[in-house]
Amino acid sequence: MGCNRLKDCLDTYVDGELPERERAGLDEHLRGCAACSELLARERRLRQMLNALPVSEPSPGFMQEITMRASAQTSSRRRQWMAALGGALAAGLAITWVALAPLGGEREEAASSVATVTMTLHETRTVRLVFGSAEEIRDARLLVTLPPGVTLAGHGARQSIRWRTSLRPGNNVLPLELVVNEGTGGDLVARLEHGDKHRTFRVRVAVAPDATPRRGSVPAIERSTPA
């Protein structure tokens, strides 16, 4: 059993698949042959290294969003989205979806074409809009116009509020702490602008008549400055 034999059988030997007698013969050879022992050690090391070869983790959110992106990029679904988004749509603003996030255990009613949040008089509730962006968008402007009788906590009696913001690839959450002061509600309009492009999203805020004031059960999302 010589050096050539080991070279031919190296893989099978390392895999432990050689018949007993042949393996014993090679073991014998290895005891006396430095070159072959060296070769065996190198092969074992190679296998070890290959086995440990790392796989990079996917980007944050990638796996969670992948199927949704697959559906959003399908043309018929894109048409549905465009209809749902409403307003004038300029091509190219890379917002792939805008959605109303669910609140705790409560389900929001999705009417046939507009997302609806049902609140009661004097209620305060944090509603979250999620803007799904395919890419980073710097220096966008966000304009939120509130329905009559509804204000945003911390913004006094203002009916529209404007922000400058940047969006990251993936989900970008806009928490809006709505306060129902009076009235029967109406449409909340969120308009995201970047350069000369914009997307608009409407949420119907329906105010149910209810004599008992209730407080929203969802804690406000803490705000942090994005990197």
Binding site: S166, N172, T225
Partner: peptide, 9 residues
């Protein structure tokens, strides 16, 4: 009002 409030969820 004026700070960046959108962040990745």
């Amino acid at each position: 009002a004026s700070s960046d409030i959108l962040r990745a969820a």
